[in-house]
Design a binder for these strands. Sequence first.
DNA 1: TTGTAAGCGTTATCAA
DNA 2: TTGATAACGCTTACAA
Lengths: 387, 387
Amino acid sequence: MTTGAKGPREVRARGGVTMHDVAALAGVSFKTVSNVLNDYPHIRPTTRARVEAAIAELGYQVNASARNLRRGRTGVIGLALPGLAEPYFGELADTVVRVAETRGVTVLVEHTAGERAKELDVLTSARRSLTDGLLLSPLAVTAEDLRELRPTSPLVLLGERVFGVGLDHVTMANVEGARLATRLLLDRGAHRIAVVGAPGAPGEPEPLGPLTELTGLAELAALARGAGVPDGELGSARPLTTTTARLRLAGYLHALVEAGLEPDPALLLPTGDWHRTSGAAAMDRALAVGLEVDAVLGLNDSVALGALHALQLAGVDVPGRVQVVGFDDTIDGAFATPALTSVSPGREVIASSAVDLLLRRIEGVEQAPRLVVAPVRVEERGSTRRA
Amino acid sequence: MTTGAKGPREVRARGGVTMHDVAALAGVSFKTVSNVLNDYPHIRPTTRARVEAAIAELGYQVNASARNLRRGRTGVIGLALPGLAEPYFGELADTVVRVAETRGVTVLVEHTAGERAKELDVLTSARRSLTDGLLLSPLAVTAEDLRELRPTSPLVLLGERVFGVGLDHVTMANVEGARLATRLLLDRGAHRIAVVGAPGAPGEPEPLGPLTELTGLAELAALARGAGVPDGELGSARPLTTTTARLRLAGYLHALVEAGLEPDPALLLPTGDWHRTSGAAAMDRALAVGLEVDAVLGLNDSVALGALHALQLAGVDVPGRVQVVGFDDTIDGAFATPALTSVSPGREVIASSAVDLLLRRIEGVEQAPRLVVAPVRVEERGSTRRA
DNA sequence: TTGTAAGCGTTATCAA
DNA sequence: TTGATAACGCTTACAA
């Protein structure tokens, strides 16, 4: 059935220019068009030019659905994060998207709010069939869940939750980062370093017990090297702030122990969550009870910035009387006044490792599950006193 | 090559269970499986049950590429925003994703950083062929650009930039919102209301000239009703903060004029950008020069929160001595201390209007371009004095 | 109520 | 160096 002569150009509904249209205009077979598009090596330059001209003239774009169907790939990967509003995750998403672009894949960002239901949904929903694989930063889902689900498509985990499921995993050297930050503060003359965002509920810090058990130097050193993270104790189902907080706290304790200092539980200031206002509130409480402090280690930039604000509010000079260090090296911190010294988590490394691990799995490479621990370094800025 | 028996049902590479496999297991034709999947009405319950059991057992998921190819749709829409890190956009993205879910489409969030190059890229890149249409919140791209590009797939614009291109457009009642907020402050006894985040560079407010021209009550009333936004003057290529700032400032002036008050240019505090720290800095400067102020209208929540912090830092009681109102009703504001009174932009309305307009275009409905202006209301909280 | 046949726009195989 | 031809897995007529 002729749909009526459609002039040479006459674009069909929904921009439906096909390879056949291009081929007709270029005077070649449609397969040649395909070859040009796929950088098939043996094409006469003039042919290629004609095809490219036709493509440009018609504004042809490949039909992704058809290509995907044929290739058995979508060229899309999922990235599921607890929330983009938190600066760290927002910036991580950004980095992942950029890295993915250089690898020729696009990223479908999903958002779990850290809720188990949403995390499970992300793993199972029909959206998965739209993607070739998933990067998941789990907060609530358990190792059990993951084992039972036996995820149908390639999966790489991010963060410090849920280990030992036989999946690729990318995390950062949390312990080492906190250790470096603490050491920097000690080097700059600090003796009483408060930890804002420590595990526990506001006002009632988690007992140091299980943590000091971890402070055996050998064990901590292993953690710091990123040699692996004990499952169980550290990997069970607790909110992000708890798990990550414990690792970072361990680094802090490690640095103190190394320096021959006795940790003072009074210096551990829990915040419940890791938002700015909680950091400010914790610092306020500490100041109110006259806690003696000459430095603050915020376990992420948000609480560090909150503490910074509270200190300034109280007329305390930063970094003159109290130095402040954060963790995550977010843009907010870099632009605060004074600019926040912070542990930089190597977002680039995290993002590219994660994407590449996933792509390798998608390509069907069989290899033992890998754990990548991104190295950290301290970005020193105005909130600490340069030597 | 046999890859070895793999449990009951030998799953092909990449979860490749097809409708045929399901049909075989259920003992029906593959078309029946398709019918079940597509909620075709006339299916015997027992047949349906058998098919569903087989689907569950095999863990079958439809192949999105094949379905899309056949349907000529991808079931994905793009959402391109300047940045997710800014609370307003982050929360808007969230709302759009949720709304889209109820409409059965997924959202590919893209990020333009407000740069023209990235905005053009978003409009033209191959990723577009992955989506059925695009929601774009343009910052840098001009009406000219859009006209020349004659975008290939359906496009709906968000925000207060680039009008009059013959495209569907969703925005909010900026003028009305600022007017309501200002009136609330006046009602609560304020006389000297500073505007933090006003157009202009920090320290040198944009002259009121072109704005006061706009304060003819009739024109402002039209704006406030959302009857349309003048192109040209307000719609040309300026950063978001400028365009939006001018609309909100117009609402502020409108309220003053209504109340018979003379606007004082000294009360306009520009911030350059709309981040927290800039809001704090502007407030600091104002306090330093002894500006007499009994209320603050922040043109977004971030600058309002910054100002709030600066006030507290200076020992000024909020809302006792100075009341503060923000704009956008973000979560950060709601959780600040005191909680921030803020203009709520009807994110739900914005999101659902935008998605629905786009879906209608995707379905090929022909209609004149629509302008939807989401209504606003003021969420009153602790940063103002309840009557 | 269920089944058959055709074709969506590509890429892969193989022949020319 | 190019061109037929056959899938890829699904939905949409239409037939049974």
